[in-house]
Nucleic acid binder design. Sequence first.
DNA 1: CCTCAAATG
DNA 2: CATTAGAGG
Lengths: 266, 266
Amino acid sequence: MPTTITTVNVNGLRAAARKGLLDWLDTTDADIVCLQETRARPEQLTTALTRHPRYHLLLAPADEPGRSGVAIYTRTPPHTHRTGFDTPEFDKAGRYLEADIGELTVASLYLPSGDAGTPRQHAKHRFMDAFLPYLTHRAHDITARGRHLLLCGDLNIAHHPADLKTWRNNRNHSGFLDHERAWLTRLLHTTGCRDVVRTLHPDTAGPYTWWSYRGRAFDNDAGWRIDYHLATPALARTAHHARVERAPTHDRRWSDHAPVTVTYTP
Amino acid sequence: MPTTITTVNVNGLRAAARKGLLDWLDTTDADIVCLQETRARPEQLTTALTRHPRYHLLLAPADEPGRSGVAIYTRTPPHTHRTGFDTPEFDKAGRYLEADIGELTVASLYLPSGDAGTPRQHAKHRFMDAFLPYLTHRAHDITARGRHLLLCGDLNIAHHPADLKTWRNNRNHSGFLDHERAWLTRLLHTTGCRDVVRTLHPDTAGPYTWWSYRGRAFDNDAGWRIDYHLATPALARTAHHARVERAPTHDRRWSDHAPVTVTYTP
DNA sequence: CCTCAAATG
DNA sequence: CATTAGAGG
């Protein structure tokens, strides 16, 4: 039975709900939806979001109010779920949530995005340094048990020149720095995961998943592909269709990111 | 020749402009409009506001960004204008602006509104203590020169029970405290000024000029009369019509306060 | 150009 | 229930 999985950074779950996310959620065929940047505590959410008729909601909010936060909507209730990745500094940062659903462990990740040269960049590096060995171990453990791992989320990194419109302008910008790109290469290498959308679309520019709200970035399709499905190999091989919904609901955007949906048939 | 003068607290000049203040300004017959709570530095205002085709704009912004600020729109360019009232603590607070226009000195005042028991209340008292003798001297000086003084603005004080809907509930609330009401009584006494709208409407409840955005205050007309025209006696005697525009532009509110307009024939 | 929080009203 | 600046993106 095919499983359709979406990842999307909502840039504020409450704002997105006001602008059309709920309409999208009512009509999508996704079995699982990974969300990033929910930016809300559970008690701030309406029941339309927390008690959705079709979906069970898992939340990993940040301790810091109004910041970060990841979540997973799943039609099949999960066996278990875990927040954080055994790194106290980040366990309550609202940046990582894992759920075991059938044969699958699906994770929603929101990687920090501190600009180069700012204080937040150091935390970002610590996050990356701690996350890579965690996921490496996790991927091997999960595959050894005959299960699949799917890491969905906003990595805030475009991997290759094809993953952003104007890569020449962005070699010194956070999101396309050499060391960030190298980290992602290494993550794929040590975990064995595949970049599912790029595998299905090897020769496409993009497909971009984020367009700055500034200027005319969206109209000019000056986007970045920074939202990923990273799957362990056996799962990646079952991916047979991927789509990015530039304007998810009746041509209306409710986030600066677009939902990235892949259908798997494990 | 009659002179029509409006006072209105705009609760953010930029927000009010977005919501309809400019449409109202295009169609009003006011010769002079006193504004309070402009909450903007001059360079943050569009030219639609600063270079209005019918009005000259005088601004007294606060040093603190986004706070207070008073202004005067006048069709006749003023001879001179002054900000503050010779009290260094408040001269750059964006709370007082005077303009000399013909026979008239018109002032736009935004009195502080700190709640009882908060630190801001002390500054409010210092303001009231400094302002009363200033205005007293000013009123006598101006009338001695055969000119008129009109003090327009948001006093954040309802003078008498008829000046708010539910006065019994508000005896301990800032805006209807005994000492605030007594201050206003004393101000009228020492300056000789008249409360023009109350003089024209001695037996009306209100007319209210402010309704909280909270709850259903506007729909229930649970308002306060806290925006005033206070005029020296000779001018007050020429006032022959007063109106409060509950919803100034096509039933659309662009502030929690309403414009208070009086026509004088000095 | 967005989101959200906090201060202020 | 509004406004604003400021942090963060």
